[in-house]
Simulated assay, not measured.
Amino acid sequence: MMTNIQKQQTLERDDYLRFRLPEALKERFKLYCYLKGITMSDTVREMIEEVLRNENLEELLQEKLLQEKRRDTLKEETDE
């Protein structure tokens, strides 16, 4: 019998994220992961989860909306 967590993990599918790094940085990261006995994917996933745990996304969204509103207001004033 599957638990709820197992069902959720079955429903969630991994997606790919591609990004560019300087070759030397990639090689150092690869070596770091090898020496720690962990995969690069697991390490990046954990880093992303840590960043998101330590950030208040609602607060960031509100700040961004305020910035955009100020920008739009300034643009309207200069267009007049």
Score class of each variant (00 low, 15 high):
M1S: 14
M1V: 08
M1A: 12
M2K: 15
M2T: 13
T3H: 00
T3E: 01
T3P: 00
T3M: 00
T3D: 05
N4S: 13
N4G: 10
N4Y: 11
I5F: 08
I5T: 11
I5K: 12
Q6E: 15
Q6W: 00
K7F: 08
Q8L: 15
Q8R: 14
Q9T: 01
T10F: 13
T10V: 08
T10E: 10
T10Y: 10
L11D: 10
L11G: 02
R13C: 03
D14R: 13
D14T: 08
D15Q: 13
D15C: 13
Y16V: 14
Y16C: 11
L17W: 04
L17F: 09
R18P: 03
R18S: 15
R18F: 11
F19Y: 05
R20D: 11
L21A: 05
L21Q: 02
L21R: 03
P22R: 12
E23V: 10
E23M: 08
E23D: 13
E23L: 12
A24W: 00
L25V: 14
L25K: 09
L25G: 02
K26D: 02
E27Y: 05
E27C: 02
E27K: 10
E27L: 11
F29W: 06
K30V: 09
K30D: 15
L31S: 15
L31W: 07
L31P: 05
L31A: 15
C33K: 00
C33T: 00
Y34D: 15
Y34L: 15
L35D: 15
G37L: 04
I38E: 15
I38D: 09
T39A: 06
T39I: 05
T39N: 01
M40H: 03
M40R: 12
M40P: 02
M40F: 01
S41T: 13
S41H: 08
S41R: 07
D42T: 03
T43A: 09
V44W: 00
V44A: 04
V44I: 15
V44Q: 01
V44D: 00
R45F: 02
E46F: 07
M47Q: 09
I48E: 01
I48T: 03
E49L: 14
E49T: 04
E49F: 09
E49H: 08
E50M: 10
E50S: 13
E50N: 12
V51P: 02
V51G: 02
V51L: 09
L52E: 08
L52G: 01
N54Y: 01
E55T: 14
E55N: 14
N56R: 04
N56K: 02
L57S: 07
E58P: 05
E58A: 14
E58G: 09
E59T: 11
E59P: 03
L61P: 01
L61T: 15
Q62P: 05
Q62N: 13
K64E: 09
K64L: 13
L65Y: 05
L66I: 07
L66T: 05
L66P: 01
Q67G: 06
Q67M: 12
E68S: 06
E68P: 03
K69Q: 10
K69W: 03
K69F: 04
K69A: 12
R70F: 07
R71M: 11
D72W: 11
D72G: 08
T73G: 06
L74Y: 06
L74S: 07
L74F: 07
K75V: 11
K75I: 12
E77G: 03
E77S: 11
E77C: 00
E77I: 07
E77N: 10
T78R: 15
T78K: 15
D79P: 00
E80Q: 12
E80S: 10
E80Y: 06
E80V: 10
